[in-house]
Design a protein around this nucleic acid. Sequence first.
RNA 1: GCCCUCGUAGUUCAAUGGAUAGAACGGGAGCCUUCUAAGUUCUUAAUGUAGGUUCGAUUCCUACCGAGGGCACCA
Length: 600
Amino acid sequence: MNELKTQTEKALVKIAKSKKAVKDLPKTGDYLFFKIKKEIAKIVSELFNNKVIKTSDLNISLPPYHIKADLSLEIFSISKILGLDPKKVSKELGLVINKNKTKFIESATTAGPYLNLKLKKNVYGEALAEVTVLEEKYGKNDKNKNKLAIIDFSSPNIAKPMSVGHLRSTVLGQALANIYEATGYVVVRDNHIGDWGTQFGKLIYAYQTWGDEKAVAKNPIAELNKLYIKFNEEANKDPELDDKAREIFSNLEKGDGKIRKLWEKFSKLSIKEFEEVYDILGIKFDTYLGESYFAKDAEDEVKKALEKNLARKDEESDAIVVDTLLGVPSFLLRKQDGSTLYISRDLAKIKFRIANFKPDIILYVVGQEQKLNFAQLFELVKHIGYSNKTELKHICFGLVIMDGAKMSTRKGSVVELKELINQSVAMAKELILEKDKDISEKELAKTAEIIGVGSIIYNDLRQSKEKNISFDWKKMLNFSGGSAVYLQYTYARIKSILKKVPGEVSDKPIFKNEDEFNLAKKIIFFPHVVLEAQRHDSPHLIATYMEELAQLFNSFYNSVQILGTEDEELKNSRLILIASVATVIKNGLTLLNIKTSDKI
RNA sequence: GCCCUCGUAGUUCAAUGGAUAGAACGGGAGCCUUCUAAGUUCUUAAUGUAGGUUCGAUUCCUACCGAGGGCACCA
């Protein structure tokens, strides 16, 4: 219990520190993208009887290739608010913009439900200046300042290896944590370790029956996992083993000292191994508050649910049952042998979190197979009455599928995360050596890790989270287009140019060809993309955006000799432009928790 | 049986209800005596089926078909 207090205090210190850091974030409204929107909103409002138009009501995008304009404004969303004919709105708005002087817009052309806008040249200078000044802060904003989020992710089970299945929660959770922080949230990263439950009865039974102390000490997780698999095999033959396991777990909850000691040993050894993986992935948790911390308090929650008539004792079995709540199927809160269940422990944890941290939101980054459980948990919380000010959100994602089916520890069809990382890094090494035989051992190891680990993370995050991911070694180890390397490589390419001649900031960059304007425009959208990624809990929006940006750059790079540009002013403008591209790629990858290197 | 998620080029993925559905891999044809060819240019090819709502549907609704997941003493 002391441990719980220590961790809580540590987290509170971090929260206080983060609150201060939020003050240094760029203001959302100061970004060019939002200033342009604001200007348009004001014009619309003045034109149509001062009807209130929020910037979020405006939908601005980059027009498709065949439209020759800088930005397009979609009119239907505005005309709906105004209750007017879209054609009329588009026409009148276009007229006013063309007649009156505006700060950012040169001219407007009506095209059906769209108003196509041409930007003033000074916009581009301002855009690049924004990036240059803010640098690693470019894209971050203070939209959600004064809010606190607890993000519950990764959550591996003690005594089981972290598998590719845990990768999604780990990688997605960390990216969301970064993105939430980038929009002003103070974030507490919590690892809800699976360290309690009947499975430990199974494990302890197996250890006591077949275990080898020395082997476990040498290679804890692998050895314990073997025992767990053996238990399940034996239990298939002899179902009574399951009852024995339940009994052992029940005794563990009741405080049996000998069993407790074993459990503590397994727990410590496992977390130590997990941290090796987190180190490689660059993830640091603020708290490791596993389920075991809330086993005792779970009993209070069961009592409260009984008092409030939300739950009842089943007469036949003595188990505690919650009957159907508002369409959510009924479920058990306590087993008939008196031991707690996942959901009651989670209930206790919510109470603890609200009491100690007062979060505005708690995100549970857990696979879709637990959707029903969270629906039940949240519904119960609502009835018990904790979550008035705290939003509970299940960030649900698809499974990692192997050969068309879910991977299973019991069946042994699991790819271990460590193995995956090792393979990826090894393959990166091979490819680097193909390109550069003289690379130093140290640099090789460093770059291979950046590429290998980045690829794995990116492969997961570039895809929208709802879908199942089919696991495929070939895809995982893809180092060409649509991978992290593509972005890392683009970044390194730019850095390599800038190392030769860095550009100097200029107020009025001059651009010549379309690629240059397109790149500058794309850069303006980055702060918007970060906000969208947070709003939709979708890091892949950032990935997609960066691929488009990198593609624009690489195309530009192939068509123009940047360092060979004769006109000095144009050359400098191009250098500033590509430097901004590099900054955006780096900032975007950092949000996804992927590293960059100046040399790839 | 009931509930949830997903069905888009040969494959893996994009597309707040908006313009001619974008990429990557694969197939075909080019581009390095010039800044990193892990790049780039051209080409090939897709919205499961049938209805409905809408000025407009890959997106929303209904039914069906297909894949995956879940449905009380596991987490």
